[in-house]
Every structure is written in C-alpha cells, then in structure tokens.
Design a protein around this nucleic acid. Sequence first.
DNA 1: GTAGGGTTAG
Length: 553
Amino acid sequence: MMMKMLLKTQTLNLISRSHPQRTLNVNHLSHSFALFTTTITGNTKLSDSPDPDSSESPDIPSWVTNQNPESKPSEDDDFVIPSLASWVENHPKVKRFAIATEKPQTQLDIFTQILKKPYSSPEEVVDTLNRSSLSVPSVSVNRLWKRFHDCWISAYGFFIWAKEQTGYNHDPQSYSFMVDILGKARKFDLMFDLLQEMNQLKGYINLYTIVKVMRRLARAGRFSEAIEVFRRVEEYGIEKDIMALNGLLDALIKGDSVEHAHEAFLEFKECMPLNSSSFNTLIHGFCKARKLEDARKILKEMKEYGCQPCVVSYTCFIEAYCREKDFDNVDSVLDEMKKKGCTPNAVTYTIIMHARGKSGTIGKALEVYEMMKNDGCLPDSSFCSSLIFILSKGGRLKDADEIFEDMKKQGLKPTVLTYNTMISLACEHSLEEKALKLLQRMEEDSCKPNVYTYKPLLRMCCRKKRMKVLNFLLSHMLNNDVSIDFSTYCVLVRGLCSCGKPEQAVAFFEEMVLKGMIPFDSLRKKLVETLEKENMTEAVEKIQRLMSNVTAE
DNA sequence: GTAGGGTTAG
C-alpha cells in the first residue's frame, strides 16, 4: 500500500513538472497513474493488444489472434501460418526483395552472388572475376565494402581485381574501407602494404585512416605497434598533433589497455598542447578499468594543467560508481558538479537511470527522470531508448510503447537503438506481428537497421518455425547491406537445429567456417547430434572435415 | 570518433 502511495505521488509529480515542450509526456505515457500502480501489484499482463492502427493497415495480417487451429505444421512449414505467409509473399517490399535475391538484376546483386561463394584466397576471387567478363560496378562499390566487411578474402580479391581494370582507380574512401577490413581480419602485413600504397598515391591517407589502423591494432592487443604508428605518423603525411594523440589514446583504451594509453600520454604530453579530451579519455580509461585512484590523479593533473573538469569528466566517475551500484557516491559526484556549476546532461542522467533500472528499482529510475526534468535537462533519443528498455524489463510494455509513440510527438527521432530495443523486446515476448511492423516502420523512417535489429527477429523465427519470414529477413538483411556476424550465425545454426531444419543449419555452419569464424565446440556438438539423429551421415562427415581444416591451420 | 549500447539459449 505504501508503495502504491509512493508511486502515485511520484507519477503525479512527473506529470506536473513536465516540460511544456520536447519532454516526454508522462501523463500520456500511462494514461493515468493507474498503470504505474497496477503494474507494481502485478495486475497488468503483457499482451499483444489489438493495435489501434490495424484496421487502417489491411496488409498486416491478424495472424496473432486469427490463427487457424486446423493449420497443423505440414512437411513444408513455410505455411504454418497461412495468413502470415501470404502477407510476407504479397507485401510489396517483400516482393522486391524476393526478386532481388532470385534473379540478380543489378550489378551489385551479380557481384554479391559471385563474392558470396567460398574462396580460399584473394587470387581465386581475382581469377573468377577475370573469367566473368564483368566490368567494375559504377555506383555500388561502397555497398560491396559494407556487405563484405567481415569477409576479407572476397573484399580484397575484388579490390585487387578492380584495381587491375583499365580506366578504374579506387578512390581514397575505398582504400580506407579496405584497410579497415584487413585490420579487422588481423591481416596486418597486408594492411600495412596497402597503407604504403596509399602513401605513395599522395593525399589518400587522412587522420581517419590512421586512427582506424591504430584502433584495429589495439583491438588485436598490438598496443606497441599502435603507438609506433603514431610515433611515425608524419611519414604518412599526417600532423602529429593533439587530434592524432587523442585518437591513439582512445584506440588504446577501446582495446582495453589504459596502461599503454597512460604510457603514451607520458611520452607525448610535452610534445604538444593537451586539451580536455586528452584528460577525459584517460579518466574514462581508468574508470572503465576500475582504477578510480588513477582516474582521480588524472583529474587533479587536468586542473593543474589549467583544464577545467567538465560534465564528461564527472560523468565518467558517475558511470564507474553506477557499475559498483554505489549510488551514495553517485549522489556525491552530482552534488560536487552542482557546486562547481557543472550541469549534468542527458548522458549523465541516462547512465544513472539505466543503472537504477538494472538494479531492479524502477521507482528510483523514474526519480532520476524527475530530477532531470527539475534540472531543466531535456531527454534525447538515447535516454528514451534506455527508459523504454528499463520499463520493458520491469514488465511495463505498455508504458514502453507510450514512450516510443511519444518520442515523435516530442520531436525526437527514434534511432536504430530505439528500434532495436523495441524489436528485441517484442521478440522476447513472441509478439511477432508487432516486431515485424516495427521493422517496417523503421524502413518508413529511413532508419538503417544493423545486425542487432535482425538477431532477435531471426531467433524468434527459429523458435516459432517461421521459415518464410526467416528467408524474408535474410533478404532484408542483404538488401540493407547487413552481413551476418559470428553470434548471429550461432543463433541461426542452433535455432535451425532445434526447429528441424538440419540442412539449413549445415549451410550456415559451413558459411561461417568458410568466412574464417571458429564456432564454439558446443555449437558443433549440437549440430552433429542433430544430424546423427536424422541419420545424415554425409553431413556429419562434411562438418568433421570442415572442422579438421580449421584446427589444422 | 571524449561520457550513455541492455550478448546466448538451454
């Protein structure tokens, strides 16, 4: 009862203190405070409530509520839910995707089909392309880099082949993409060769290229080499300035070595004037590594140097305390900030609200939102995504939906993170129609999906045995230049094993191995067990051959 | 790209 009263008061406060413009309308969010109180008592059920728009969208099936009990899973489970299958088939967008995958029509499709095949070396790709009598596609090269960013053999083979074609030269952006692809695949010798080649072309290397190189090296744990690139940065025609140093520090910290970042800082700090980013980057690094004493030392040094600590500096400390669930110290930092006239911003509040929500106290999380409004700080899209996430994790799907719908009204554009949050939550609760409609809205909003958009959808399709939708999603991914990553392959292989599609599971497993990914042993076991159960001896042998090649390398 | 991203089902 006490809790109810508290929440009631809190909700009313949230409503009365809301900003007139661009703030979330919490009143609208919950219709009334009733929702907040009913959820706390557990009376609000998660349900795929009838969508108010559904009557206006005849092309969206009512297959959640309108399932035909007689439509038992057939041999071809593409038609488990006939209305869904027909929606997917007849949807104009799906038709377009289907055409794109069945009959290659554009140059991009033709190249994609060729490059998708497994190759053992870039030379093999070059040979294949040489025999094809194709010419370099005029406009889609950038999309090819995106599609094959984690498939260095295909990308590099195409790169070499295209370079050899008369009348074609790669632009600096293509070189930069290729450098990054090689770095990601840890083909550092090739990456450095290409960097040399760019250097000879004059004007092809910019700071962005160098930062990418340092970042890839640092990610691979090659910290000294990353520092060496910075040391010799002028040989690449790049100024050894504070921008470059900050890039190095950030790369080393993203590669999880604040120690190397600190070493580099000590080595180069006398060579150029520092700025607050240099200090903040180091503070962040030490906070991330849970070395708060070191972070405090940098803060002190920052002041002595004449740089005023700012909202970013303090937010790093707040994040560190949030990670420890030390909310007393979070409050102390907030007080200190306010005393110094440094106003917390949406990032600061997002971090605190998220941490409060994750530690299971939604009431406290909403108090943060209230505090934020009192301080005159406006929520942004990332803040809303976090709020949606926190509310949904607490079982308040309807409130989360309201926040999502309110964003646009408040002039906030949902980002890919917002959509991913919404889609993944819909998928978790098996709200299939809702999840697919969100994907559709994303397209209408021109919001580019990423691999995290598709992963929960694909998982849900496997769980619910929606093969037609699965294929639709795979085409959709391809069309949006989103390639399947390691963990998504795992989801697909595991999911397809579980839903009685061993052939497809084998195909994806093979594809991931040929892309150079090394699957977990548990995944291989699951696949082999499934195949043995189905007496698919040849497939088992194929998997074993595939894996013996991997371990032999 | 100075700080906010909620992986992997069983």
